[in-house]
Write a protein that binds this DNA or RNA. Structure first.
Lengths: 246, 246
DNA sequence: CGCGGCTTTGATGTTCATCAAGTAAAGTGG
DNA sequence: CCACTTTACTTGATGAACATCAAAGCCGCG
């Protein structure tokens, strides 16, 4: 009975208990982004309805049309939100990073996902059962206001981004996404492009070939350095200017 | 003292009292769009914080950057939401119609308007003081959920619209807006275009000249009839097909 | 080691913006 | 109310921006 595997099992229970305490939402580094207004009982409700999932690069987290029954929350990694049209072509709505509430916009308006979600890097997601989440919203008006706030901000940013994209031409669009990755996602001037050239095109509504040509042009102009997927931004100032002037 | 003008003044007070009773939010035709969950006391709060305004075609209702201190609600007419860039060029985000909550997306995320709002036709707007509105949200969780729902829907629709626009070319974009006006706004196949050709261009990110050319082409193809501002849609089927296939 | 997906470059054609120039309509001030 | 000014509308010509097609090298993976 008391063989090695059993000891390991007991040990794993101990680890799980410990990590559960540590990883309770109450102590989560992202707590203040949304859950700042909860009391201990409410943390318990959320925490008990919570599961963590890890997804590998390429894995689909949610599929367009799938029923929504949880609130999702990114802890680590990178994902894309996208739609596939009838011809099988993808369009990417946004790329999201840790701290983002990747399905908040959909939760209250639809029973089903309007976009698919897939991991671009190894991604850690918190999944909170929707009934528990809505329960807390209903009983804590400060929290409800906070959610309202968040939804508004997300929607504002998404609309703003799409709106400004519409008036830019290709160089401005590419500059924009490079700056997004360097400044918002990786906070470094050198990073590994987490998407293919085709995906960049899907994000800014341009063809793969023209994305490649624009990358090459930026390299020739000394604005970036390119080594396969690894991009180094050499001239932030000029890149920002291209982003601004379209 | 008791001359004609004074009698008219007394009479006008009487009319105002009467119309105020009739136009109480509780009896508003649009009540169920958002205010379905309120009790009598809450209607009173909203109603007491409410003012009605009429704007003529061309009048600016709110200016980008202006402080938000009310919840706005369209009762009659047509407005555009737009942004003016540094070169003085306008871009139109959306055209809104009665029943729309024209600033709901901005209320909870920003202290200031991110877009300007202007009347395209004679427009009747209900203006509810923001403190009263938020008060009711805080104390009625069903109402809060309802607002969450509305915000999500509006944001969904706006994003969806912008997103689908990005992949269309000019004919699809023009078809799209013609269908929007015919089916959603006027519910007739013949209507007076409420915007200039330039404004159509500002809405779909195209030049005035190309909007005109596209209108002419649709006329030559027998899809629409054109008489200055008056447009008649002759072939819905083909127009819808152009909208769908981009 | 061969297959499929990603990347790259060049050639060609389409779509659209820009420029120019003129007519029609709608305000505006005397 | 009329002359005047501005704004809206329209068409054509030209060129820039971008998509499409074609071909080939590269890389990872079964």
């Amino acid at each position: 009975m008391y063989d090695i595997s059993h000891i390991l099992y007991i040990y794993s229970l101990f680890i799980m208990r410990t990590s559960k305490d540590i990883l309770n939402c109450k102590y989560c580094v992202y707590r203040n982004l949304l859950f700042g207004e909860l009391d201990d009982k409410e943390y318990e409700i959320i925490n008990n309805a919570r599961t963590e999932y890890v997804f590998k690069r390429g894995e689909v987290i949610k599929k367009e049309g799938e029923r929504i029954n949880s609130f999702l929350y990114m802890r680590k990694g990178l994902v894309k939100l996208y739609k596939t049209d009838r011809r099988g072509k993808d369009q990417i709505l946004s790329i999201n990073k840790p701290g983002d509430f990747i399905n908040l916009l959909n939760i209250f308006s639809n029973a089903a996902y309007k976009y698919s979600i897939a991991a671009l890097e190894e991604t850690l997601v918190c999944d909170v059962r929707l009934d528990a989440f809505i329960d807390v919203v209903k009983n804590n008006s400060d929290f409800a206001l906070s959610v309202l706030n968040r939804i508004s901000k997300i929607s504002d940013e998404t609309i703003e981004r799409r709106f400004s994209l519409a008036q830019k031409q290709i160089k401005g669009r590419v500059a924009n996404i490079l700056l997004f990755l360097a400044e918002d996602v990786y906070r470094k001037n050198k990073f590994r492009l987490p998407v293919t050239r085709r995906e960049v095109g899907e994000l800014v509504s341009m063809t793969t070939e023209n994305i490649i040509r624009t990358f090459s042009e930026f390299r020739k102009d000394g604005i970036i350095d390119l080594d396969g997927k690894v991009i180094t931004i050499l001239d932030f100032k000029r890149l920002k200017n291209i982003d601004k002037t379209g």
